[in-house]
Structure formats: structure tokens, C-alpha cells
């Protein structure tokens, strides 16, 4: 059950969210073609040693992106 609105950069390792929408149209084009579409499950799997970038699994593979980019993705947090 979706709990509350968050953005992707707020996930903790292991947490799962459902993509809801994007706040940056240009950034959304890049994320969309990499499979980050609304309704897709994303899980935070890794944070780089210096706290940024992060790595998520989405549609069956691992994608890395910076926190600033992740914060343009609005998600619904799933209870883990």
C-alpha cells in the first residue's frame, strides 16, 4: 500500500517505491527511456562511498544516477 509522497533520493537502502511523476521535463526524458516510467517499482540498492550517486534497480536491471536527478522523481513509498 502506498503510504506517502516522497522523492527517489529520500529512499534508504533496501526500500522500495513506485514511480509517480517527474518534476523536471528534460530530465524525465532521459529517465523514461531508461525504463523509469510511472507505475514502475524501484528499489535503492547502493549508495556510492561518498554518499552520491546512488544505484537503484528498475525493470530488472541496475541504474545509477545522482541524488539531484533522483530528487526530480516523485514516488510513493512502499512499506518495506
Amino acid at each position: 500500500m502506498p503510504l506517502s509522497a516522497h522523492n527517489l533520493s529520500q529512499l534508504k537502502i533496501g526500500q522500495i517505491g513506485i514511480i509517480d511523476s517527474f518534476t523536471d521535463p528534460i530530465m524525465s526524458l532521459k529517465l523514461l527511456e531508461m525504463g523509469c516510467t510511472p507505475g514502475e517499482r524501484v528499489q535503492l540498492v547502493k549508495v556510492a562511498p561518498m554518499g552520491d550517486p546512488i544505484a537503484i534497480t528498475v525493470s530488472g536491471y541496475m541504474l545509477s544516477l545522482r541524488k539531484a536527478e533522483a530528487s526530480t522523481v516523485l514516488i510513493h513509498l512502499l512499506a518495506s
Partner: peptide
């Protein structure tokens, strides 16, 4: 000129 980004696949 524009925002920097780093969106990259981590291959197996």
C-alpha cells in the same frame, strides 16, 4: 550551458 547529469546503466 545546461545541467549536468549522470544516468548510467550498471551492467552485470
Amino acid at each position: 550551458k545546461e545541467k549536468s547529469y549522470f544516468i548510467m546503466e550498471m551492467p552485470v
